[in-house]
Simulated assay, not measured.
Amino acid sequence: MKRRSFLNWAVIFFGLTHEKDHAMRPKQNIKYFEKIFSYLSDPELRLRENGDDLLVIKNAEISGVNFIELSWKNIHFVNCDFLGIYEIKLKDLKNTTFEDCFFSGVISWGKADSLRYVRCKAQGRTIVLDYSGSKNVRFEDCQFQGHDEDKNNWGGIGSRGDASFFKCNIKCFLNRRL
């Protein structure tokens, strides 16, 4: 447990201290978005209280909390930072947009359907993927930057299903349908 915690903070520190273009203003941790945090942690509560209404989350840091084997849908993340290793490992993710978001760590969306990344950034050994059978995953105007030419330090972003990349700037980063 202590090792995983150390690794989480190492990825957060390494990712944030080396991101040149990322806005460094602090964001509030998702735990302090009380109702939104409850909805992310318990999708059934959200469904009972709001049905399938779009959930908009702005200026949040999603880190330090495990979201494991959950089903998320109809979410719009705006200017959010996703940081950490193996903290997000969803069952599935549907109808979700990431706008101006930053990713650093290892993230699994589960089976993805209708995801859109707009002007998002990732760097280093960050891995953001989904499960086989995912579809309609679209990256637009994103920037993905690995640390150097050594493939062992590259990150990866994409889909194990259907993915499209439009006007993305990608260097030393694997991007593809896997």
Rank of each mutant, 00 (worst) to 15 (best):
L40F: 03
E19L: 00
L54Q: 06
K31C: 05
S71N: 15
D42C: 09
R48N: 12
Q28S: 05
V65R: 08
R48Y: 09
W72P: 05
I30N: 06
W72G: 05
E19R: 00
E19P: 00
K20A: 10
Y86C: 00
S38A: 12
E87A: 02
L70R: 03
G51H: 04
L70A: 01
V65F: 06
S41C: 08
I62A: 06
L83K: 08
K89F: 11
I85G: 07
I85H: 13
I88S: 01
G64W: 13
D81T: 02
R25P: 05
I36R: 12
V56T: 10
R46C: 04
Y86P: 00
W72A: 05
E61D: 15
H18W: 13
F82C: 08
R48G: 03
C80I: 01
E69P: 02
M24L: 09
E49G: 01
N50G: 00
Q28N: 04
Y86H: 05
E44M: 10
S63A: 14
R46I: 04
C80P: 04
N50V: 07
D53H: 13
Q28L: 09
D21K: 10
E19Q: 00
K20T: 09
K27E: 11
D52T: 13
D52K: 11
F67K: 03
K58F: 13
F77H: 04
L83T: 12
I68L: 14
V56Q: 11
I68N: 14
R48P: 01
K27F: 13
I75T: 12
R48F: 09
Q28C: 04
A60Q: 07
H22D: 11
P43M: 02
N79V: 04
D53G: 07
L70H: 01
E19D: 00
P43A: 04
K89C: 12
L45T: 01
S38G: 12
E44A: 08
F77K: 06
L47R: 08
E44H: 07
L54E: 07
K58Q: 15
F77G: 03
E34C: 10
K89L: 11
K73D: 15
F33L: 10
L70Y: 01
T17H: 04
V56A: 08
R25F: 10
E44C: 03
F37M: 05
G84F: 09
K35R: 13
K27C: 11
A60K: 08
D21Q: 09
L70F: 01
Q28R: 10
Y32E: 14
N59R: 14
K89M: 11
F37P: 06
D42K: 12
I68P: 05
F33D: 10
I88E: 02
E61T: 15
P26S: 09
P43F: 03
K58C: 15
D92L: 07
K91S: 03
D81I: 03
K58N: 15
V65P: 02
I30W: 06
M24P: 02
Y32W: 12
N66Q: 14
F33P: 09
D42Y: 10
H18K: 14
D81R: 07
